[in-house]
Write a protein that binds this DNA or RNA. Structure first.
Length: 559
RNA sequence: UGCGGUGUAGCUCAAUUGGAAGAGCGGCGGCCUUUGGAGCCGAAGGUUAGAGGUUCAAAUCCUCUCACCGCAGCCA
């Protein structure tokens, strides 16, 4: 009855119509074309996943293409990290990793073709003059005084541009379109500019470089792309994309635009993210609080969670802001099925079981993942002195607090029922120890007489615990839209609690052998991942995302 | 308002293209539970930006209005 309409969107509808009409011999070929000028973020992940998964869905291909037309901004380092990120997200471009810069010669020939047609000319105007001649959105521009140069003169000058006879910025090659067009992009756009600068791929071979508008459609055409998917800000460029390809009379892919991803409590601007890194608000591009793909990875996000997220938000031309809660939900959803569970006490307080034999240690059995029986079981050491979470004990327990308090019995997970009998305090009135008794009959966590307890808490045997540092991460910004304030900079809204370092965490000994990069669940706390800052002497875990927490909600609602 | 876009539940998207406005997330309530997790169930939530028009029938077509976004780089 309900049709399978997963992941349907307006782009797929266009594609399905094209397929039906037999366009492009029913071939589907997309591309992901980043400029290698920085690190990728979750917004790019949306584009990557859209382009690659669309190709997958229709048995097509997707190219990875570096749009490296500006030597001033691009670096090999970024090529490397972009490749890693795309691969990590789970996509394979096979042997189709291309560079726009490898098409420079071809593009040059096409430009000569346009000059010969009288559709392009060499212009001597400088930047400021070009701006003046261009006019404004509401006011028509004026023709450049160099617009009517002869074909021969243009050919000769363009050759000289290439040969390095002019200095940076001295001349440009422009398309001859319409200086009075209502679309600013059609007012004789620049096709080539002179930049005497080394290029990461072509070195010093070229000193003229194609602009995006001239290059991009050609790149798509050369690679036989069928559907060129890009973000909304290129909508106004589509007429120009089409104009170049039509003028050249070459294979003509279709450009389709969709809206960028915006997430609340973070920012997506490359420039601003760079500012966070440069001014040390974060530790680097892969800081676990960053929305970069490498940051997300280090935070404990999985490719599956990110792909699920992108699938759920859908594709449209509507510019909205997606709730971070959805991203977090997707991570929990994925990790709940996969992550092994462990006991970890983040804010420890000592529990002494007065009636438990001194020097005795037992091994108790624990389930590794209740969602996955095949994950098996493990042994937990239990002894007289334990750590439990500070928050799991309250001297004056309020209503609905079901955890430990003096006189109440709770269950230690996989172990025994214990009852708190008294507490010791230091001179400041801080609780130092909680004294309890245990019921030997309740081993494993069930009472033979059938009595129930209201809560189950986690614990770690004191003498067996591993000491570690745990980095508790929270949202980078404390308000939903850090860019919304007209007066204040987004920097003023950085969440001061976005990182809290817990130095004195006590982990169950089994965590010693955990694999790098494998997310685990600390029971009742959340999902964590071993950080790369760990070494032989010290493990460091990052909080990926907390578990949903009813008690926290009750407390919050009280306020 | 020069041109180009976008307005459907708190958020993100659907609605077989003119045929009974729906899902996921969030929030709320309940059940269950050896994670206050997970899971299950339920109700709430809509003048489809607004006004007119065409039609037996409009989120969908037409007209007007409003709000928001993009465009004046030799960036992409």
């Amino acid at each position: 009855m309900i049709e399978n309409k997963e992941n349907t969107n307006f782009i797929h509808q266009i594609i399905e119509k094209d397929l039906l009409e037999g366009k492009n011999d029913k071939r589907i070929h997309t591309r992901f074309p980043p400029e290698p000028n920085g690190y990728l973020h979750i917004g790019h992940a949306k584009a990557i996943i859209l382009s690659f998964s669309t190709a997958e869905k229709y048995n097509g291909l997707c190219n990875l293409r570096f749009d490296d037309t500006n030597p001033m901004k691009e670096e090999e380092e970024f090529v490397k990290s972009i490749k890693e990120n795309v691969k990590w997200l789970g996509y394979d471009w096979a042997d189709r990793c291309y560079f726009a810069s490898n098409y420079f010669e071809k593009m040059y020939d096409y430009a000569v073709q346009l000059i010969k047609k009288g559709s392009a000319y060499v212009c001597d105007l400088n930047g400021e003059e070009i701006r003046k001649y261009r006019g404004t959105p509401k006011m028509s521009g004026e023709n450049s005084p160099y617009r009517d140069r002869s074909v021969d003169e243009n050919l000769e000058l363009f050759k000289k541009m290439r040969d390095g006879e002019f200095s940076t910025g001295e001349k440009t090659l422009r398309a001859k379109i319409d200086m009075s067009s209502s679309n600013m992009n059609m007012r004789d756009p620049i096709m080539y500019r002179i930049i005497h600068s080394e290029h990461h791929n072509t070195g010093n071979k070229w000193c003229i470089y194609p602009t995006y508008d001239w290059a991009h459609g050609l790149e798509d055409s050369i690679e036989n792309i069928t559907h060129s998917l890009c973000t909304l800000e290129f909508e106004d460029h589509r007429p120009l994309y089409d104009w170049f390809l039509d003028e050249l009379n070459v294979y003509h892919p279709q450009q389709i635009e969709f809206s960028r991803l915006n997430l609340n409590y973070t920012i997506m601007s490359k420039r601003k993210l760079a500012e966070l890194v440069e001014n040390k608000y974060v530790t680097g591009w892969d800081d676990p609080r960053m929305p970069t793909i490498s940051g997300l990875k280090r935070r404990g996000y999985t490719p599956e969670a990110i792909r699920d997220f992108v699938g759920r938000i859908g594709i449209s031309k509507n510019e909205g802001v997606v709730d971070m809660a959805l991203l977090e939900h997707c991570l929990r959803d994925d990790l709940n099925k996969k992550a092994l569970r462990f006991m970890a006490v983040l804010n420890p307080i000592k529990v002494v079981i007065d009636n438990y034999p001194e020097n005795q240690t037992e091994e108790l059995e624990a389930i590794n993942n209740p969602e996955d029986e095949s994950a098996g079981k493990r042994k937990l050491p239990f002894s007289k002195e334990l750590y439990i979470e500070k928050d799991d004990f309250m001297e004056d327990a309020p209503k609905k607090f079901w955890r430990l308090t003096v006189g109440r019995e709770v269950r230690l997970r996989y172990a025994y029922f214990i009852k708190a009998t008294s507490i010791s305090k230091d001179e400041n009135g801080e609780i130092t120890e909680i004294h309890c008794t245990y019921d030997p009959e309740t081993k494993g966590g069930n009472a033979p007489d059938g009595r129930k307890v209201k809560s189950t808490i986690h614990w770690v045997s004191a003498k067996d615990a591993i000491d570690t540092e745990v980095r508790m991460y929270d949202r980078l910004f404390s308000i939903s839209n850090p860019l919304s304030d007209k007066e204040k900079s987004y920097l003023e809204f950085i969440n001061p609690d976005s990182l809290k370092i817990l130095e004195n965490c006590k982990l169950e000994p089994n965590l010693k052998n955990i694999n790098n990069g494998e997310a685990v669940q600390f029971e009742r706390n959340g999902y964590f991942i071993l950080d790369k800052d760990s070494n032989d002497k010290k493990q460091i875990f990052n909080l990926a995302v907390t578990l949903r927490d009813q008690w926290k909600k009750i407390q919050k609602n009280k306020k």
